[in-house]
Design a protein around this nucleic acid. Structure first.
Lengths: 241, 241
DNA sequence: CTGGTCAGGTTGTATATACCACTTACACAA
DNA sequence: TTGTGTAAGTGGTATATACAACCTGACCAG
């Protein structure tokens, strides 16, 4: 019998089910209890139980078959790797040890490209930080972030070598990154990039442009990253319609 | 007043709203009618109207704000480009003219890597087709697809120069591609690849490995694609949690 | 053995209702 | 002027119920 409280009942059930799936208690391919069983077992109405299941289906943990039941999905290799994360969390999901060197941080006016991405006027002052990202001690990426929100100039005082930008934005500034659009391209490393990444000029690199959104689809960050082609692989999942 | 029929009411309303959003009738940032207004207007219950809205929110067309209303989201540049599509549809979404040359097609036994991806035993016979993909007459990608389902050997008789593999799989074989996991990497073109793509050896290329799933999360296709780095950009969207 | 029907299970759709949490605007009091 | 409370409107959560669509297995007639 789930309690009513600050945490909604459907969410409590959702987490219980997620636990059983990710914890291996319910094996892939096997049916989970029917919706009617679940409501009886946890003392809630069918629509509430359905909401829990629906969200887990959308997240790829379960799948439904009409007339037959709801089943545990085969675990996707990429489950952890397709979420919006900062570099730090990304590396942790890949079981690598992340580190950061801040190359530069400053306030700069927006150019035309960035202004379009962030939906602001060119010339507006943005916080800009350029960081070298390392995994297990090796350079992996150069990341340039441009951040825009009211009060973003206070980011100049933050310690971005030891704290995650996304964590700071969410916890200290109430600007949680919630969604992002990305573009990826294969390119060759230029002189400067090669030097920083400790690779050869002309080695392959992955260019990633990311626009990050917070509440209300408000653009928050525009980031350009250059990843070593031989050390980084990008994962994604696509759906039909 | 929406009709009850083969098409569910919530789906009818969903399409009506989607039309108004994509057709520009409701501008980005403006509130749509409240849930209570919609049920009254179309003669259905609030939970039904909510289902329509919820799905459109998940698809990124709308966003909700508690206590305030539901609003039209800013259109994302990538809206069309982040869905699971075959090459043909992908090019059409990018407003380019696609063409195809079949380089080879055959039945081959699965090697270890492919067998793992498709969750079958190594050695099982698969349909394999290697195609050169062109956009506006220029070579853009080399695509190698390995397809596995009962009866896949009949694909040998299909005309894959003029028909879409995904269309055929869905319409003629009842195996619709529904979801896919992808891995992307930046690499350099090898001799053979460079010749086919009409670029120089050592030019940057994007390697994409895709596992496509059909109903019940059943692996259907494993594909390796090599895209020209200077002509192709990959789009994706990420969500937090 | 084959094919059809039926019962009982599942998810899918839909209604009606109620209350909660949050936002906004406005009237009113300090 | 400045709060501040109140009312009305919004989406968020939750219940109870009903029937449709679909799948499976058991049973039965041919």
């Amino acid at each position: 019998m789930l309690k009513s409280g600050p945490v909604p009942r459907y969410y409590q059930l959702k987490e219980i089910i997620r636990q059983k799936v990710t914890g291996g208690q319910w094996a892939p391919g096997t049916p989970i209890p029917s919706e009617r069983e679940l409501c009886e077992q946890y003392g809630l109405s069918r629509m509430t139980a359905r909401q829990s299941i629906t969200e887990l289906v959308n997240e790829g943990y379960l799948y439904r078959e009409q007339g037959k039941g709801t089943f545990v999905a085969q675990p996707k290799i990429t489950q952890q790797l397709i979420q919006l994360t900062g570099f730090t969390e990304d590396m942790e999901a890949r079981a690598k040890h992340p580190a950061t060197q801040v190359l530069k941080h400053e306030m700069v006016p927006a150019d035309a490209v960035v202004a379009t991405a962030l939906r602001i006027k060119p010339g507006q002052l943005l916080f800009r930080v350029q960081r070298l990202r390392l995994a297990n001690g090796e350079p992996l990426a150069i990341e340039t972030s441009l951040v825009n929100f009211i009060g973003c100039e206070h980011l100049m005082d933050e310690d971005l070598e030891h704290e995650s930008l996304y964590q700071i934005l969410e916890k200290k500034y109430g600007q949680p990154p919630l969604e992002a659009d990305q573009e990826l391209e294969a390119r060759l490393a230029g002189e400067e990039e090669a030097r920083l990444l400790k690779i050869g000029k002309g080695d392959p690199v992955l260019h990633i442009h990311r626009t990050t959104y917070t509440d209300r689809n408000q653009p928050l960050e525009f980031a350009k990253s250059i990843y070593r082609g031989d050390k980084y692989r990008f994962y994604t999942r696509l759906n039909r319609k």
